[in-house]
Amino acid sequence: MIDWTHFTPQSALSGGLIIGFATALLWLLNGRIAGISGIAAGALTSVGAERQWRLAFVLGLVSSSWIWLMLAPLPEVVVTSNYQLLALAGLLVGFGARLGSGCTSGHGVCGLSRLSGRSLVATVTFMTVAMGTVFVVRHVV
């Protein structure tokens, strides 16, 4: 059943278009794929100019909520997970995205936009597993 009270088509589509615009800009200006896990992980390991632009991108991402706050109050954020679960999930997300060469942005947005079969397989895999995980946590356990 569709949750009509929480469905926000307008902000979702606008947000998606802005994400797409940011991704398009990074590609057309810098020739780089906006895959967040790849950029952030590379910021830790690379050196010189390679590290510089990655750190700049991450800095932009990290400061976005403060720029938002200058214009409007932050949207609602609800986190119900405890600290242990956040730590475990963070470890899985980091390890998995790096091993799998990408996350929601790199495979999900960029990969699907380039019609990459490899990214399609990755996206279907993590979407299915994530939906299965939520199913087990909410409806089975």
Partner: peptide, 9 residues
């Protein structure tokens, strides 16, 4: 990797 990522997500 994608499986573990999906699990954490």
């Amino acid at each position: 990797g994608s499986t573990l990522f999906g699990l954490g997500w």
